[in-house]
Simulated scan of single mutants.
Amino acid sequence: MEEVLILIISVIAGIATYIVSHILNRGAVIASAIITLISGLMLPYFFPLMGSVLATAAACSSYAGMISLENALNLLEMSVISLMTGILFIATINSYPGIGGRLGTMAAISCFAWLGFKKVFVGFD
């Protein structure tokens, strides 16, 4: 059940960051900061036992949501990237705790994996 919740929060956070950044034209850094702040304040309140883990997953996915509009063309693509980020977060949840750059690295890996998938299977340049 915890893993499903992490995946749901990851997808919501990634899509929300994408919307604030690209649809509301607020910029990627501001969008990620807003989503991370809201997640950090609200998720521990609503989920006392695992709120900090969910907030961390939301932050990780918000970093993936900073992808450019040219690389993620729509919300469907962003939802797939966010889902991949959530899966990677679950797979590495106990790896290197406290090491800086881990969340951004997971977000970058998810974005690069999506771009590679599109290039190989869809044929985009």
Results as ranks from 00 to 15, higher is better:
E3D: 13
E3V: 14
V4H: 06
V4Q: 10
V4L: 15
L5V: 02
L5I: 05
L7K: 02
S10P: 01
V11F: 08
G14Q: 05
G14A: 08
G14W: 02
T17A: 07
T17D: 05
Y18T: 07
Y18E: 08
V20H: 10
V20G: 11
S21E: 01
I23G: 03
A28S: 15
A28R: 10
S32L: 11
A33F: 09
I34D: 07
I35V: 15
L37C: 12
I38M: 13
S39G: 08
G40W: 00
M42L: 15
L43F: 05
Y45I: 12
Y45L: 14
F47W: 01
L49E: 12
M50H: 13
V53S: 13
V53M: 12
L54P: 03
A55C: 03
A55Q: 03
T56I: 13
A57K: 06
A57F: 06
S61W: 01
S61D: 00
Y63W: 07
G65W: 03
E70Y: 07
L73V: 09
L76E: 11
L76H: 09
M78K: 11
S82D: 04
M84T: 13
I90T: 07
N94I: 00
G98P: 01
G100S: 15
G100Y: 04
G100Q: 10
A108C: 12
F112T: 12
K118Y: 03
K118W: 01
V120G: 09
V122H: 02
F124E: 07
F124C: 08
